[in-house]
Simulated scan of single mutants.
Amino acid sequence: MNIGLTGGIASGKSSVSEFLVSLGAILIDADKIAREVMLPGHPVLAAVARQFGQAVLLEDGALNRKKLGEIVFNHPEQLQALNDITHPAIRQEMRDRKHTYEEQFPDRLVVSDIPLLYESGLENEFEQIMLVYVPRAVQLDRLMKRDGMDEHQASRRLEAQMDIEEKKQRADIIIDNSRDFEETKKQILVYWHRAGLS
């Protein structure tokens, strides 16, 4: 059985994924895979260096994130070129792992943690989508506290993603993480038992 796990920024998705793993789920983390494909020796990093030049590599062959950021940050066409290289590779790696885990562990829940799941149009790749939900006002408050942002900066970050209420309309499973985490755990356990995973 598999689900896609998503949420808005500062919704507490990582805490939910950690709790699911503690119950016995297997986690596939999109952000982690995105970092892995940029490690020295990976064909994706080699393709990025061909596209943007050797200046995006450090002397040891690792990615110079600062240099790459300078190239793509204010140039949408360059950012698109980077995404065209990295996104298909990340998605394929996630699909391969999901397939492998489902074959090896047919009785366990496979959770794919994808921050921009809806924005990337990936909802049809999963049996169900679980959304970690907090209202926008809570998101804003947590983001300001977590990242030391002012309200304007935090609002701009939120506006870069699909509205959390739209995600809520589309999700199959909603975990409300706007109160304390003990309440959140109770909701996850209800889902876990209903899905026959205990």
Rank of each mutant, 00 (worst) to 15 (best):
I90S: 04
R91C: 01
R91P: 09
E93H: 12
M94T: 00
R95C: 03
R95G: 00
R95A: 01
D96Q: 11
H99Y: 12
H99K: 15
T100F: 12
T100D: 07
E102R: 03
E103F: 11
E103G: 13
E103L: 15
F105E: 08
P106M: 09
D107A: 11
D107R: 05
D107N: 10
D107E: 12
D107P: 04
R108A: 00
L109W: 01
V110A: 03
S112Q: 11
D113S: 06
I114G: 03
P115M: 00
L116S: 00
L116M: 06
Y118D: 05
E119V: 05
E119D: 10
S120D: 11
L122H: 14
E123R: 09
E123Q: 14
E123F: 08
N124R: 15
N124G: 15
E125L: 09
F126M: 02
F126E: 04
E127I: 09
Q128P: 09
I129Q: 04
I129R: 08
M130W: 00
L131D: 09
V132D: 01
V132Y: 04
Y133M: 04
Y133T: 02
V134N: 08
P135Y: 07
R136H: 06
R136Y: 00
A137W: 07
A137E: 13
A137M: 08
V138K: 06
Q139L: 02
Q139V: 07
L140K: 08
D141K: 14
R142S: 06
L143P: 02
L143V: 01
L143F: 00
M144Y: 07
M144P: 10
K145V: 09
R146F: 05
G148D: 07
G148V: 01
G148W: 09
M149V: 05
M149G: 04
M149Q: 02
D150V: 07
E151V: 12
E151K: 10
E151S: 11
H152F: 15
H152M: 13
H152W: 13
Q153M: 05
A154P: 02
A154T: 03
R156E: 15
R156K: 15
R156D: 14
R156A: 15
A160H: 06
M162A: 13
M162W: 15
I164L: 11
I164P: 14
E165W: 03
E166F: 14
E166R: 13
E166L: 13
Q169F: 06
R170V: 02
R170M: 10
A171F: 02
D172M: 03
I173M: 07
I174G: 12
I175Y: 01
N177D: 07
S178F: 04
S178W: 04
R179G: 15
R179C: 14
F181L: 03
E182L: 13
T184G: 00
T184F: 10
T184L: 02
K185L: 00
K186N: 04
